[in-house]
Write a protein that binds this DNA or RNA. Structure first.
Length: 257
DNA sequence: ATGCCGAAGATACTTCGA
């Protein structure tokens, strides 16, 4: 089984990239973030024609998440957002696919340490932790994929000095990510030998991609059972080189069995 | 160089992203 995550920064603009990528990379599940589409605008026909079943929860302008599940996979128990956590913003969609619990998450950005949005980010992450603890008790095979808006370590940041103490790397955010991992979730990317300065997002400004001035903020966390079966995790930089790219690029994990 | 780029709602700019 191959599972992937990609913040597309508008599915309307990036639909062609997504369809081309799926043709080249026929993963079993692709998790999308920042679709920025209300559900009535979701390109259902195009996704189905590409051989995928779409599950989605969107809103106008901001956020929006989707799961594209390869046709033939058995899908059950679709959940939108974090149960019990009141939230207008559409940031989570989950489903059980061939017995694996897939959680697709778009973690709040946080904007700045002194902003309300940062407090919301920390509250959101605490609610996510509590809910995932519950989910793990029901689903030993669980993968939490998405745009975490957190760089776990300094080696995941192009210029740690410049970013020190800022949003995406601050101590409370990293502690919130560590609290998720303490439930028994593992950063699949770090299970394997990886190139230095491996990133999943680059700023559109200041020639970020050309200078490889990026961050690794898109992650695939795997439960113990899935970690044991994981044979690879890679970042695919190719879509970031296309015309009119998303600022994020896909991350893919391979799980045997 | 966070006044930079890009998307979206709107229609002259603003908000937000990371």
């Amino acid at each position: 089984m191959k599972i992937a995550t990609w913040n597309v920064n508008s599915l309307k603009v990036r639909l062609g990239h997504v369809l081309n990528w799926l043709a080249e990379n026929p993963v079993d599940v692709l998790c999308l973030q920042e679709t920025k589409l209300t559900d009535d605008k979701f390109p259902v026909a195009e996704i189905e024609a590409a051989g995928y079943q779409p599950l989605f929860a969107g809103q106008k302008t901001y956020n929006g998440v989707a799961l594209l599940v390869r046709q033939g996979r058995v899908t059950a128990d679709v959940t939108v957002n974090i149960p019990g956590f009141e939230d207008e913003q559409k940031r989570v969609i989950s489903a059980t696919v061939d017995g694996v619990r897939i959680v697709c998450a778009y973690v709040p950005n946080g904007q700045a340490i002194d902003s309300d949005k940062y407090q919301y980010k920390l509250r959101w992450l605490a609610a996510m932790r509590d809910w995932i603890a519950d989910e793990l008790s029901r689903h030993p095979k669980l993968a939490l994929l998405g745009d975490y808006n957190i760089a776990p370590e300094d080696r995941d940041v192009h210029d740690p000095k410049a970013w020190e103490g800022q949003v995406l790397v601050s101590v409370p955010e990293r502690a919130a990510l560590a609290a998720l991992q303490a439930l028994g979730l593992h950063d699949s990317f770090r299970l394997f030998e990886q190139a230095e300065k491996s990133f999943s997002w680059w700023d559109y400004r200041m020639l970020g991609f050309r200078r490889n001035a990026g961050m690794r903020i898109d992650h695939i966390l795997l439960s113990d059972a899935l970690r044991a079966a994981c044979t690879a995790c890679v970042i695919d930089r190719a879509p970031r080189k296309l015309e009119q790219p998303s600022d994020h690029t896909p991350v893919i994990a391979t799980i045997e069995g």
